[in-house]
Simulated assay, not measured.
Amino acid sequence: MSRFTWHGGGLEAARARFGDSRGEGDAWIDLSTGINPAAWPVPADLEIDWQRLPSLAALAALEAAAAKHFGVDPAFVCAVPGTEVGLRLAGTLLPEPARYLTPCYRTHGELFGTATPIARADWRGEGEGTTILANPNNPDGDIVPRERLMAAVAQGSPTNWLVVDEAFADPDPSVSIAALVSDERPLAIFRSFGKFFGLAGVRLGFVIGPRPLVDRFRARLGAWPVSAAAIAIGTAAYRDRRWIAQAREQLHNRALALDVLLRRAGYKPRGECPLFRLIEVADGHALFERLAERHILTRPFDEQPRWLRLGLPDSDADYDRLAQALAYG
């Protein structure tokens, strides 16, 4: 199970283990990730200069478009080649001792040489060094109230850094505390492009933080932190306000439909993030296997063998196949 519990998106490994599809009605449905299945449609005529290194002006335009989307000053925004890279760089730039709130995204526990896990329910915002948490959380979709995070920022000292991974915040902008970032606060926010826009392969993310921290990220990343394709796609997507508004509504409706499906199958869906749901069953690994045998890939967990996370199906037909598979599960 290690490949499937390590990270979502292991479709190649699933095909090798459970077989490839034999026809349209047997095609694999990948629900193992929390990625929007209805991706932003990249225009066929989008101009990408493959022959030259990205210009500083183009990078600045991307960061300005993203900053407007986040509701922050562009001076606080730095593009990174995916939030995974950005988070791991943060582990080399921010002070220890470090704490990470659990349950959590696996990378959070790997950022520092030593870090202390703290249950989300037990965290009170105290402690010197660095605290990292996800909001909304992965994998359970829990959301820490904005007021609680604001209080933690307010009581923090200059040596008490708070890092909030907002990779799943785009569907509901009210969750974000990015607007609190300033040069006077030890607060850093990470945002992902690929999840909400459904284009994980672009490998684009952002650090939002005080300008001295942003400068340190830029120094580590070098002159060309992201590709010309990432710049062109990201800039155009963040400027597409109509698509963003429609996507938020559609994700909400898709998540409600998944809730109904899961409840009808006898499961209690957990989570407030519309990109995925978590269910607790007698044996999550066994249900994973039964669904995979029907070519439906989900996300099991080593540390929580009763959990199974499901992303959003892409179509009515996929919802029907999932409902039928769960009826036999």
Rank of each mutant, 00 (worst) to 15 (best):
P269Y: 07
F301L: 10
F301S: 13
R216V: 06
L258D: 00
R242E: 15
R306V: 08
P305G: 11
V214F: 01
R263L: 09
G271R: 01
P269N: 03
P269R: 10
V260Q: 11
V260Y: 03
H295W: 03
L297V: 13
T235A: 09
R309C: 14
I244N: 10
V260L: 14
L287C: 07
P269H: 09
A232I: 07
I231Q: 01
E249R: 14
R248I: 11
R264F: 10
P225K: 00
W243Q: 06
A236M: 06
H285A: 04
W307G: 07
A282R: 06
A236D: 14
V226W: 01
A255S: 15
R239Q: 15
L297E: 10
F217T: 08
L275D: 03
R309N: 08
C273A: 07
D302L: 15
L221I: 00
E280W: 05
L278N: 05
P225F: 01
R241W: 13
L278M: 13
E272L: 14
E249H: 14
L287M: 08
G222K: 12
F217V: 06
D259Y: 07
G234L: 10
T235F: 11
L291A: 02
L261Y: 08
S227C: 10
I231N: 00
N253Q: 15
L251E: 03
R241C: 12
R299G: 00
Q304E: 14
T298Y: 07
G284E: 02
A223K: 13
P269Q: 13
R306E: 10
H252M: 14
R220E: 15
D215Y: 09
G266L: 12
I233Q: 01
R290Q: 14
L262R: 06
L258Q: 06
A228L: 06
